[in-house]
Design a protein around this nucleic acid. Structure first.
Lengths: 164, 164
DNA sequence: TATTGTTATACTCTATAACTATA
DNA sequence: TATAGTTATAGAGTATAACAATA
């Protein structure tokens, strides 16, 4: 097997996520995982989401809920199908997600006048208030992420992934 | 055994993942999501995993199963706790994951001589054969990813995310 | 017939807790 | 007491299918 033992590329990724090791065993080798973007992107995505959840824990808003509130707010009257397509969420899952948000009094579903099938989505005034707070907390989370990555690396990643 | 998890995922840029719109409504606005790395990293991670699953569908190996097989192969005799810590998988989940792989005859759990609690993990010869095939298919998946991203952007992402 | 939104099902993943056996 | 591994449970998330109302 091709363990990357020589040289400088012996990556020990995400050290902070693994518990401290105190054994005498040599560091575990990731072998060909080192060449797979999917492996590292998954690890970092999980880390970022956990940090986001912590950052917004006081208002109990998940990453998915945040993205839904932001897009409804910026596109008032959007239908569920449009919202689902925009965020890549299944229509079925979005229905339950919106049901929760409606139960918390954060959104309204108005019947569309020109198409009886559609629900025109809007934030309630309570939803607008909460979203303002959520954006503040999310911005703080992002600032810490920028501190950790460095400004240049953060914006490089943002651009590369946005253009994917 | 569960069947293949096929997905009809779109092999298109995220920007064009929204369905074609026939109305006069302007394009849906992402607002502050545009500044959040977590949003885009999640979208890309999901896309890459779906592509990986398609690429290895013929041998029914998921991303998590692949990472487990690779790391066991490169670190023979590893314990479950070490493997779990390396990959960031919960011990409880790893136990079930290994149970499946053992049921498929891909791995062995030998009792450690010096510590009766530990299981020394190894691939079976069948597991080694399958892993060779899996690595070939995964490498093909990665090459297509490189084609899509461009070599420089791929290695930039790999390094930035590995050093996270 | 196709689309919008809904409900239901199944499976995966994450996060715990509780348990055993070993140390 | 602490650790390694297991089992169980609950809650998200994902992927389908089927359905009613509407177009």
């Amino acid at each position: 097997m091709t363990g990357t033992r020589s040289g400088k590329t012996r990556a020990q990724p995400l050290r902070s996520m693994a518990p401290t090791r105190r054994t005498a065993r040599p560091a575990v080798v990731l072998d060909t995982l080192n060449g797979h973007l999917g492996y590292f992107i998954r690890r970092v995505q999980v880390w970022i989401f956990q940090d986001f959840i912590r950052a917004l824990a006081q208002i109990d808003i998940s990453p998915a809920q945040f993205s839904v509130l932001v897009v409804i707010s910026a596109n008032s009257g959007l239908s569920q199908a449009e919202l689902a397509a925009t965020l890549g969420i299944e229509r079925a899952r979005l229905a339950r997600l919106l049901h929760q948000l409606q139960g918390r009094g954060l959104i309204q579903r108005l019947e569309s006048s020109d198409d009886g099938r559609r629900h025109a989505l809007q934030l309630t005034s309570q939803g607008r208030t909460l979203l303002t707070r959520a954006k503040t907390l999310a911005a703080r989370h992002e600032r810490q992420l920028i501190e950790r990555l460095g400004v240049e690396r953060h914006s490089m990643l943002l651009q590369a992934l946005r253009d994917f």
